[in-house]
């Protein structure tokens, strides 16, 4: 009945590296998982998701609830949320997503949820893991995060990345710059790289390259591919514009291109102007007009 069991119940033939997603609840871990999987098996919502850790690996689509007593019960792939928290130590999901050819994923429950036992995060990290810590841009890197990371960091031998999620919520460049600098300063030496990202726009980016790049997830995904394939990780771009002008990034959603033997064909450099989207964007009602608001409710 303790978390040691959780490590035993991961019978992987050959152990791929694993990305472990951690952070405060509602930071965007499941959103990120769904982005990487290029489909949406995990529930995403504004309140805390009551779900045990979800481990996702390559295989014919199926899902299992693993009990604290070791029992393994098949469950519906789209009914993950129906499992009983008190009895389930882990949910195992198999999918045929391309990213899973490179790695397994572990989507952890968020910290600071009053309903989650604190032991949940002990003994999770194993030698094959890289932690992706998600911190919410508007309240980035609080004591509750720093305290847990201080315990976890020494357990990790992988390369760990810090994502500043929901970066779109910061309203201007100066604010973005200030948050980034402060987080860099406070987490100095704790992570291998820091990436500011807007997960919601990446989630709906589809094949729209400029949205994908602008979301910041492109740069992050390139780094992850590099570390999973043992290549030299890219130097984190110090400025957004550098990323914009970079050649087409390798995409974790379709990483197969990476496995092409070297030298990889140089992809067409695609230069994207900063705020021009090629795809249609959802029309946003504007407040420019008093009539707009005067007419609501009718």
């Amino acid at each position: 009945m303790n978390e040691d069991d959780m490590i035993d119940i991961t019978p992987q033939e050959e152990q791929k590296p694993r990305l472990v997603l951690m952070g405060e609840f509602s930071a965007g871990k499941s959103t990120l998982t769904n982005i990487i999987l290029d489909s949406q098996p995990l529930p995403m919502k504004v309140t805390a998701t009551r779900l045990p850790p979800v481990q996702i690996s390559y295989g014919a689509p199926a899902a299992f609830a693993i009990g604290f007593d070791g029992t393994r019960t098949q469950i519906e792939l789209d009914g993950l949320e129906s499992v009983c928290m008190d009895e389930t130590a882990l949910i195992e999901v198999h999918m045929e997503a391309e990213a899973l050819e490179l790695c397994d994923l572990l989507d952890m429950p968020g910290i600071s949820d009053p309903n989650m036992p604190a032991e949940m995060w002990e003994n999770v990290i194993t030698p094959r893991d890289h932690v992706i810590w998600c911190t919410h841009a508007t309240q980035a890197w609080r004591q509750s995060e720093a305290a847990i990371w201080k315990i976890l960091a020494p357990q990790s031998s992988g390369q760990n990345l810090l994502l500043i999620t929901q970066f779109d919520k910061l309203q201007n460049d100066r604010d973005k710059m200030r948050v980034r600098k402060r987080v860099e300063y406070e987490t100095d030496g704790l992570f291998d790289a820091i990436y500011p990202v807007s997960l919601l726009s990446a989630l709906s980016a589809g094949e729209d390259e400029s949205v994908w790049i602008e979301s910041g997830v492109a740069a992050f995904s390139e780094h992850v591919i590099a570390l999973l394939t043992g290549a030299e990780p890219p130097a984190p771009a110090s400025d957004e514009t550098v990323q914009m002008d970079a050649p087409r990034a390798k995409d974790l959603r379709h990483p197969s291109a990476v496995t092409v033997p070297e030298p990889a064909p140089e992809p067409e450099p695609r230069i994207m102007p900063r705020r021009v989207a090629s795809g249609p964007r959802p029309a946003v009602r504007r407040l420019a007009d008093p009539e707009d608001i005067a007419g609501f409710g009718s």
């Binding site: 405060e24 309140t47 600071s112 009053p114 919410h136 508007t138 309240q139 509750s144």
Partner: peptide
């Protein structure tokens, strides 16, 4: 509280 993360253990 912040709407995007209402009622964490710290708030509680």
């Amino acid at each position: 509280l912040s709407a995007h993360q209402a009622l964490t253990s710290v708030d509680m």
